[in-house]
Each structure stands twice: as structure tokens, then as C-alpha cells.
Amino acid sequence: MNPDDGDAVVDLVLQGATGPVDAPALRGIEVPPNGVRRIDLARTAPNAQVTAAHLTVVRGRITATARNTWDPLGRGRVTTDFLPADAEPATASLLLGLPAKPAQPTLHLANPGEDEARVSVRFVTKDAVFTPTGAPDIRVAPQSYRAVDLSRLLRGAAAQGVVGIALESSAPVASSVQALVDDDLVLLAPVPPLRRPGAVVVPVGEKTMVLGGAERTGVIHVTAYDAAGKALGDLQVEIGPDRAVSVKPSRRGGRGHRRAPQHLDPGRRVGPGLRREGRAGDAAAAPGGACRRRSRPSGPTSRALSPTSQSSSVG
């Protein structure tokens, strides 16, 4: 989406397990003023292998997201979800909102750099951040993509209470997690830190907000609003480093608003994530808005996408 009155131009580069994928049609994509451009990757750049996408804004500004459809063979249920934006590759990332007992949990990693990246995986619970037994030492080649099956790590008693994944890498990588819950697709991306008041629109029904990534011990004020803007209640939630907190903002549908204390230390931050009960979903709040990313022409942005062998689109 182009929020400005002038044209915007972007380049989209695909990366596979063996390196960049040739897709000339994805270069010089024009996004009209105050308009939306949708690109069906399955048609524009058909590819049997799993790929990641590196989005660069050449001119103007855009916001972007990836819409992925899981269409299993046979009589399986077709399900669609949106992958939140991963603004840029990072050496440390936090993915919150992991559902309990996910099926086919897969970590997607993309390395857009010139050096090999070594990535370590840690799990986040309400009590601690720890390295699971048998966690692999993941290596991602330069300018390539890798998928890691997390099924073995998310089994048994050690996986109980895990609500997020913390990544540390020797080189910047883009990351996401894909899983299924009751045949429903779940997509998670790193949550941006919240250093000042912020908000997120939440789905109707039961949902749980997950807070983590705090640098210091502190208190977060969480206020839930209904669709008419009426406050439904206010909670004060204690949070600290190396753990996560799960909060149910309200049992009623509407909008959820979260804000940090007014006198929050600038060095303190928290990463928010959202998990919807029943049908697991995800969302991340950027300060001052919900589920958004602004790409800047001063540098490229990057993120891992779900398989293009299924139906994926960017818009």
C-alpha cells in the first residue's frame, strides 16, 4: 500500500535454499498513489521450492504484508492468514504468540547478507527463557533461505508453557514461524519493541496478549476498549527480563489498547504479541498504530515468507 500522493517503486528479490531466485518480473514494481498493488507470487514467480522475499523500497514509501493460503491435498481445510512485517533483518529477534501444541511448527530463516549466519533458538515462558534440549546449531548460507522443523523441540513436558521463541544470530536474519492449530494456519513474525504508548486492533472472541522482551522490571498498563471507544477495564501487569506475561485484555469483543507507563525509562522496552484462543492468530503492535510497518527509502527491508509452492501474495 502506498500512503502518499506520489508513485512508489519497490523491488522484490526471492531467496531459496541455494541462493537468489531469478524473477525479473518482481523488479521495478510500481504502486500507485494512495493505492494498493497485489502480487500473486504463485503466478508471477512460480517456484516449487520454499523461498523468502527481500523487499526494497526504491522510491516513495509503502506498507506491505504477505497473505498466505494453506491448501492441503484431499479434503483438508483451506485456511489463510497474514504474515506480519519483519521490518529488517536482525541479530536478535523475539516471536511471541506461539499456540499450545502446534502442528508442523516450522521456523523460516532468510540471510540476505554476504556472510554465513549461525542461529540459536531459545524458548520463552512465563518464568524463563531457556535453550531446549537438543536445539540445533542452525547455519544459514549467505543470500539464502532455510526452514527448520521445530516439531521435536515442541514435544513433551519441556514445551509446556512456551509462548514465544527468541533467536540470536551471528549475522542479521529475517525470521518467521509457521504452524497449524486445528487445521488453521498460524503465522508469526518478530514483534517490534514498544517504547511508548501503542495500540493494536484485536479479533472478536477469546484472545490472549503476550508481552515479553523487557529490558528491566516494570509495570505495563493495559486498557481494553469496545468498538464504540468505551473503556472495558484497565490492568497493571508486572513484567521483567527473560520471561513473558500472558494477559486477557477483555472477554468482550472490540478494540484492545495497550500503553506503557507515562514515565517509562527510555532504556526499557517490551515486545507485544497476540494469540487468539480457539482459532490461533497473531498480531504485533507498532507504537501509535496496529499491525503496520513503514518502509524507508534509506535502506532495504527484509522478511521471511511462507512457501510459494502454496498460494502466497504480497500487498
Rank of each mutant, 00 (worst) to 15 (best):
N2V: 09
N2I: 09
D4W: 06
D7K: 12
V9E: 14
V10M: 12
D11A: 03
D11E: 04
D11M: 01
L12A: 10
V13L: 09
V13C: 01
V13K: 03
L14D: 01
Q15N: 02
D22G: 02
D22F: 07
D22N: 06
P24T: 09
I29G: 03
V31N: 07
P33R: 03
A42M: 08
V57S: 11
V58I: 14
R59N: 02
G60E: 10
I62Y: 02
T63V: 07
W70H: 15
G74Y: 05
R77I: 08
R77H: 13
V78E: 12
V78N: 05
T80G: 02
F82R: 13
A85G: 10
A87N: 12
E88P: 00
P89I: 08
A90L: 13
A92F: 04
L96G: 00
G97C: 11
A100Q: 14
T106V: 15
T106F: 03
P112Q: 11
E116N: 03
A117G: 04
R118F: 09
R122S: 15
A128L: 11
R155F: 04
G156T: 03
V163L: 09
G164C: 06
G164V: 07
I165C: 03
I165F: 06
E168A: 15
L180A: 04
D182Q: 15
D183A: 15
L194S: 12
R195V: 12
R195S: 05
P197D: 12
P197A: 11
G198R: 07
V200D: 11
V201D: 08
V202M: 13
E206K: 01
K207M: 05
R216A: 11
I220Q: 06
H221S: 11
H221M: 02
V222G: 01
T223D: 10
A224N: 07
A224L: 01
Y225A: 11
D226H: 04
A228T: 13
L232D: 10
L232M: 13
G233T: 08
L235S: 07
V237W: 00
V237M: 06
R243K: 14
A244S: 15
A244K: 00
A244G: 04
P249T: 07
S250T: 14
G256L: 15
R258Y: 11
H263D: 15
L264Q: 10
D265S: 07
P287I: 09
C291V: 08
R292T: 12
R294V: 14
R303P: 03
L305K: 00
L305M: 06
L305G: 06
T308D: 09
T308Q: 10
Q310T: 07
V314I: 15
